[in-house]
């Protein structure tokens, strides 16, 4: 039921939108693709994201950030509009360690939205010859989001902020 204009907008401006969240920018998160119900994101391998210095394996927290972001974006890919959302819960199963030196991808699919709750499942994996290795997952997740209708900036504000590498208004939160 996705509005294709939403997907087109995300496709056209996805890299700018990813840069909007300082943490996503800090871990180098990139948008790979969006389609109805589905979002695919990637985090490049980086030494500062390693969770075990003996093995060089990326920490689970990086996978958590990636799956959380991909899951949230997939909700928009399902509803066809951007809405304020809050993650209610995220459950992750770790099947195998990420391979050191390899980028990690996450494919999330929003399969149901009720009045104000969205249900998502996702897989984190590597990619080989341009193909996601979904049959050899690093981790899988299920997530639920509450659609709050809370404040979200319009897309042009987001792009302007991301381009400026803007810091958040730290005094505004209280």
């Amino acid at each position: 039921m996705s509005d294709s204009s939403f997907l087109e907008q995300i496709r056209a401006q996805g890299s700018m939108i990813m840069g909007f969240a300082p943490h996503s920018r800090a871990i180098g998160m990139q948008m790979v693709s969006v389609e109805p119900d589905v979002a695919i994101l990637m985090v490049p391998y980086a030494p500062e994201l390693v969770g075990n210095p003996d093995t060089g394996v990326v920490h689970g927290g990086v996978i958590t950030s990636l799956l959380d972001n991909a899951s949230g974006l997939s909700v928009g890919c399902h509803t066809g509009e951007r809405k304020g959302m809050a993650t209610l819960d995220l459950r992750i199963d770790y099947m195998r360690p990420a391979t050191p030196g390899e980028n990690v991808y996450a494919r999330a699919e929003c399969y149901k939205v009720t009045n104000n709750i969205a249900f998502v499942r996702g897989i984190a994996c590597h990619s080989k010859d341009g193909e996601l290795q979904l049959a050899d997952p690093i981790a899988s997740c299920v997530a639920t989001f509450m659609i709050t209708g809370g404040p979200i900036p319009d897309i042009n504000t987001m792009i302007a902020l991301a381009a400026a590498g803007e810091r958040p208004a730290e005094s505004a939160g209280g």
Binding site: P22, H23, S24, V62, S65, L66, P153, G173
Partner: peptide, 10 residues
């Protein structure tokens, strides 16, 4: 950055 809030993944 609008709230602002710490990333859920963090």
């Amino acid at each position: 950055v609008m709230l602002p809030a710490i990333h859920g993944g963090v």
